[in-house]
Amino acid sequence: MLRIENLVAGYGKVQVLQGISLHVPEGKLVTLIGSNGAGKTTTLRALSGMIKPESGKITLNGTDIAGLPAFKITRLGLAHSPEGRRIFPTLSVADNMVLGAFPRLTGARPKGDVQADIERNYDLFPRLGERKEQLAGTLSGGEQQMLAMSRALMLQPQVLLLDEPSMGLSPKLVEEVFIIINRLKREKITMLLVEQFAAAALEVADYGYVMENGRLSASGEASALKNDPAVRAAYLGQAH
């Protein structure tokens, strides 16, 4: 579904990604783990067009999307719930949600039933339903994270990129977020998940990639990676 070959990208003269290749098969959940600054967020930003890759190939469902502006990539069906949530603070929860469906409401993607999808999101995240008329900027961090995820889902994406959905959340909320990711996985939504909680991410994912200094250092079935001694030592905090 989403295939990356030899992706090189960075910010200005600073090259972060030194040529990575990665594959997210249809209906699967792939996770990208690694320490801070390894280039996980940069990978997602290059995929969704927030930064222009220097070289390499990115194909979404066979279409080359490398270097396209973000809005065009979104209209091709790739949704990105970005680092830092980036919800629209002066708009209501409901309006944030509606904007996630912008391409569907403006003819760039099949319309479907937008209202039903909003209701479905309120089922998935009841707290958002209780606050639909509230300005998104007044939500708590956890609620904003849920809004960012449900806003991305509103695209009815072919591929969903999730950047650190657990960042800054209380342990209880982290657990809740992973329950929802699991639920989306069961619905066969194709996902690429970047996570700091490597253990939890490998628990829920089908495949995993480990990133180190802009390169992929290991990959494989998530269950295999979870038991790999090197990965355990470096990322799962179970060295001793």
């Binding site: 067009g49 927030m50 809005f71 970005p82 980036r86 919800i87 629209f88 912008f102 391409p103 760039a108």
Partner: peptide, 14 residues
């Protein structure tokens, strides 16, 4: 309004 709030995030909405 979304573009005024956060231009990059608005781009991600298509």
């Amino acid at each position: 309004v979304a573009t005024s709030n956060d231009r990059d995030a608005a781009g991600l909405m298509g």
